[in-house]
Design a binder for these strands. Structure first.
Lengths: 237, 237
DNA sequence: ATTCGCAATAATATATGATATTTTTTATTA
DNA sequence: TAATAAAAAATATCATATATTATTGCGAAT
C-alpha cells in the first residue's frame, strides 16, 4: 500500500523500519487510507464486527483507531450507535477548501520568509518529481493516481515546510487529507492549468515573491474547488 | 466539575440530560479538563494502571480516551512506551497564539458579515455575563476562575458563531483550549486592559466594523501572549 | 574502584475474547 | 396502521493474556 500523506510517526524517533510495528498503528493507516481513497464510502456504517474481519484486529484495537479518526474528523462517532465514515457535502468541501487556503497561505508566507538552502533544495526536488508525473498524466497515462497525488502533496508540503510552526503544519496536514478525499472521490485531473499554477508557485517561492505566491496558491485551490464541485454534481447518486 | 468549553456532543441530537451517558465520554471530559487545568502536569507520564484507579475505567476505555486526546494534541502518544501529557514550551505557546489569531480573526470577519439578530442577541448576553464577572475579578474576588474562563470562552465563541463554517469552529475550539491551558498554568488575570479590549471588540462587532474588530482581537491575543510568556518565566521550575 | 555489557526480573503497554448494555429489528396485538 | 413486546444485533466495557520496554543485579574488563 502506498500511504499518501507521510504518516507522522507517533513518537519522535524516526524509525528506519518500514513496517508498522503495532496492530493499532497499522489499522489506523489502513482505515484512514481506505476512507481517503473512497474504499470506505462516505456515510457508510463502520460495524465493528465487519471491520474485525477486514482488518484482522480486535474490537478494542479498532475502537482505538476509530476514536482517533473521529477526533481528526474522518469518522463520525455517534454515542451508543457506533461509527460512520464522515459524509461528504458541497458545503463541507467549500469549508475545507477555505480552511486550506487560510492555513496554507499563512504557512507559505512565513516559509518563504524563513526558508534556507535546505528548503530550496527540497522544493526543487519536489517540483521536479511532480512535474515529471504531471507530464505523464497529460499524455494520458492515468495509471499512477496515488503516486501523482503523493508528489502533489510533497510539493505543497515542501513549499510550507519552513514555516516554523509544527502546530500549523499538523493542522494543515489533516485539512489537506480531507481535501484530498474529495479529489479522489471525483477522480479527475485538471490538466494543464494546474501544472502551470504549480510552476508559477514554484518560481514565485524561489524568487521570494510572497504576494504572488500566495495569490497563485489561492487561485490554485479555488480552481480546484470549482473543478471538484462541478464533478461532484455529475456523480452517480 | 464545571467543564469549560462546551463539549461538543459526539452525535447530533442535543441531549437534554446533563449526565454523560457513557464511561468513555465521561472520562474523556474529565481527563481533558484535568490536563487543561493543570491537575495533570505537563509532561507527566499517564500510566494506564494509575489512570484506572483515578478515573474508575478499564484500560481499553482509557486507551480510547487517550487516543482521542492524542489526536487533538493534548496528549503525546509514544508507540510501545505509553502516553504523556503534552509538554509545554514558549515556542509551542507562540505557535498556538498565532494560530488562534489566524483562525479567530478569519471567523470573526465572516461572522460580522453574516451575523443576524440571533447572533447579536447571543453576543449581547455573552458580553454582559463576562463583564459582570470581570468586575468581580477586578475587585479582588478571585474565587471563580473557572466560571470566568467559561464566560470568556462563551464571549469569544459568540463573536465568531455566525462564521458559517463548522470545520473552522471546531478547529478554533481545540486551539482555544490549548491556549487556555497556558493561561491556567500561570493563573494570572490581566485586569483592566483585557476588559477594555473585550468591550472594544463587542462594540466594533455590533457596529459591523470588521477592520477594527479584527485589529482589537489581534492585539488582545498578542497582549495575552506576552502576559503569559512573562508569567511563564517566573514559574517554579 | 568504576564503567560497561549482559542477563534475569519487574513493570508497563498492547491486544484479545468474553460479558453487560443499549439499540435496532422483527413479531404480535389492539 | 400504530403501539407494544420479544428477539436479534451491535456497541460499550471489562478482566485477562501476550509482547514490549524498563530496571535491577551481577560479573568482566579497563
Amino acid at each position: 500500500m502506498i500511504m499518501l500523506t507521510s504518516a507522522k510517526p507517533r513518537d519522535e524517533r524516526p524509525s528506519m523500519s518500514q513496517t508498522a510495528p503495532t496492530v493499532g498503528s497499522s489499522t489506523y493507516e489502513r482505515i484512514k487510507h481506505d476512507i481517503i481513497f473512497g474504499d470506505l464510502a462516505p456515510g457508510a456504517k463502520l460495524k465493528l464486527d465487519g471491520l474485525r474481519n477486514r482488518y484482522a484486529a480486535s474490537v478494542s484495537t479498532l475502537r482505538e483507531t476509530l476514536n482517533r479518526l473521529a477526533s481528526e474528523g474522518f469518522v463520525q462517532a455517534a454515542e451508543q450507535r457506533g461509527f460512520f465514515v464522515r459524509p461528504v457535502s458541497a458545503t463541507d468541501l467549500k469549508e475545507i477548501a477555505e480552511l486550506r487556503i487560510l492555513l496554507e497561505c499563512s504557512a507559505l508566507e512565513t516559509s518563504i520568509e524563513c526558508g534556507d538552502a535546505d528548503w530550496e533544495g527540497n522544493l526543487v526536488a519536489a517540483h521536479h518529481k511532480l512535474h515529471l508525473i504531471e507530464q505523464k498524466m497529460l499524455d494520458g497515462d492515468t495509471s499512477q493516481k496515488e503516486l501523482w497525488k503523493r508528489y502533489d502533496w510533497e510539493f505543497h508540503q515542501a513549499l510550507i515546510q519552513a514555516c516554523n510552526s509544527d502546530n500549523l503544519l499538523s493542522l494543515h496536514g489533516t485539512i489537506f487529507d480531507k481535501y484530498l478525499r474529495y479529489q479522489m472521490l471525483v477522480l479527475t485531473h485538471r490538466g494543464a492549468p494546474a501544472i502551470d499554477e504549480h510552476k508559477a508557485m514554484f518560481d514565485a517561492a524561489l524568487a521570494r515573491d510572497i504576494a504572488t505566491a500566495k495569490d497563485v496558491l489561492k487561485g490554485h485551490i479555488r480552481s480546484g474547488l470549482d473543478h471538484t464541485l462541478a464533478a461532484m454534481n455529475d456523480l452517480p447518486k
